[in-house]
Design a binder for these strands. Sequence first.
DNA 1: ACCGGTCGTCGAACCGGTTCGGTGAAGTGA
DNA 2: TCACTTCACCGAACCGGTTCGACGACCGGT
Lengths: 338, 338
Amino acid sequence: MNIGEIARRAGVSRSTVSYALSGKRPVSDETRAKIQRVIDELGYRPNASARALANGRTSTIGLVFPPAGNHYTGMQLDFIGSVVEAAAAYDYDVLLSPSGVDSDRSFQRLLGERRVDGAILMEIRLEDDRVDHLAALDFPSVAIGRTAHPENGWWVGLDHTALVEACVHHLADLGHRRVAFVNRPEQLLRAGYESAHRGLDGFTKAAAERGLTVRTYCCGDDAASGQACLERILHDDPATTALVTLNEAALGGLYRGLAQAGRHVPRDFSVTGVVAGRWAETVTPQLTAADVPAEEMGRRAVDLLVERLDHPDASPRHHLLAPPISLRASTGPVLGTF
Amino acid sequence: MNIGEIARRAGVSRSTVSYALSGKRPVSDETRAKIQRVIDELGYRPNASARALANGRTSTIGLVFPPAGNHYTGMQLDFIGSVVEAAAAYDYDVLLSPSGVDSDRSFQRLLGERRVDGAILMEIRLEDDRVDHLAALDFPSVAIGRTAHPENGWWVGLDHTALVEACVHHLADLGHRRVAFVNRPEQLLRAGYESAHRGLDGFTKAAAERGLTVRTYCCGDDAASGQACLERILHDDPATTALVTLNEAALGGLYRGLAQAGRHVPRDFSVTGVVAGRWAETVTPQLTAADVPAEEMGRRAVDLLVERLDHPDASPRHHLLAPPISLRASTGPVLGTF
DNA sequence: ACCGGTCGTCGAACCGGTTCGGTGAAGTGA
DNA sequence: TCACTTCACCGAACCGGTTCGACGACCGGT
């Protein structure tokens, strides 16, 4: 069941079997056929650990994301799915690693023990010790998201600032003057999560440009928090007519809060934000949103990583995406404005 | 950066370093301290591939699920998250493998190349070639779901039959007489997906017991399909007053279809089904449902797998779960019945 | 008949760990 | 003083692949 057994049965040496399989040196047609016959007969497949040891590559990439206490969002699911699928196309396996910081045990396993050839990082923070650590080691990695200093990095990011700005302008164009912003949970904002910060920046900036009256909120990643958050919004300023959210998991709760407050969407209240398209379509009315192209982002991250693995000296590349707003049914003009 | 380097710097042999680390043979305190100092200084961590090759274990488990063309459901996400977290607690990594059948390339990588010590299978079919294949090889694995012949297997399953029966009885108790069943997509039913079949069985059986008039539907795993399915239901029998669904991803679309048909939930129409609790709470009104304990199932699957890995001769164990229905807000009595 | 080159194959070393058998030094008892 | 343990460590073999250098067989050219 190992290469020596194959060699013995085929009457050749181990190295010949290896060359027949890899094609790195010529082997006569006759010998190759004999070897192939034995391999097929026994269903032999070379041991991955031995191969990894010998040539220093594991053909595995690590997908690193913080342990969220099982509060994964739909967007993260889409990332994971697309990364796995794209990696499979390049003959890479994907090792999942729940890891918060670089001193993390799980992180050390991946890197220190050389379980993976490269890594894809999710849930990036503006100051991210994992990114810094990997950069210092020159370890092949690609971030889904970008830090505050993205110049010399490999990443595929989303222009949250521009996307949220677009959402605000869209609402302002519709006549909304009092708008709320529903962000990711407060601990994530404090931890410096990129999307939370850049989104907030974009919101603040665009709201100032348009002279809107705004309030900003942090909200837990679940429906109950969304509902509570909406109640707070209407309590703080009952004249609020619209909100922008980055918080996909809270969306259902926000909608419920509006329904219970008797506000009809979009007639009495407009909702928009930055959400993966597939999930924007599950709510009623369907969410007008900047659709996060999660599938594309995952795929591109893998493309970049593979390129980096194949060309260790290539200079950093990245993609900054800014998809347009998809107009669906959750926003409308303020009543009496037109 | 390898064990030889550590040995040289500490002035001992490679085997002594190995024993100092593993503790499998006594090492003097003095020597151990010296070795530890060198290790800390250099930040040494033993190479995982070499270790795997030497002791025949990779400390990795495979998580196998069919490639869904990125149509992963929230429930699958919960499974993945809980498996990763539970595995980390046992010091196992998780390798993700999108794989449909046992002849699959990805499946062959996992098993044939010995990349993993054991596997957890998701999305089980009643006749599942992957399960049979693994059983024939006596390869350590645990299924999340059970085949038609689950007697001698390792699995953690959900009693879909009983759960759907409970849903039907709940509706019948409320006075509903014309009920629809919304199943997973037709190709999954045809492929023999366990939940689709057992759920359907439970529905048919309970409906017969209660003398209900029923129709059953297959529905794609997305919101648009859910909406279309609901339109079909009301077109086929406008007198339908309730539905039971297994299809989590279609739920939002079903609700939208009802809203657009002017049917208020739960006043005019009741909705229930089998859905992971976290997702049942995102819709409004919140879904009365048999909550799939995805987190518990993932955790238990890992527990079983680790037990099987530690005790190769242990006899098969399994868990069949049947959580009670969580009464929320999506079901109610038929108007005029009481 | 001899030389040089090409082709196909082999043996040995190596990747970085683990583990078995053995060995020298120190300790114990008669 | 000597035989017998025990202790702490070492060297070598092994896990299952890959790869390098070498070597014999065969070929064509003089």
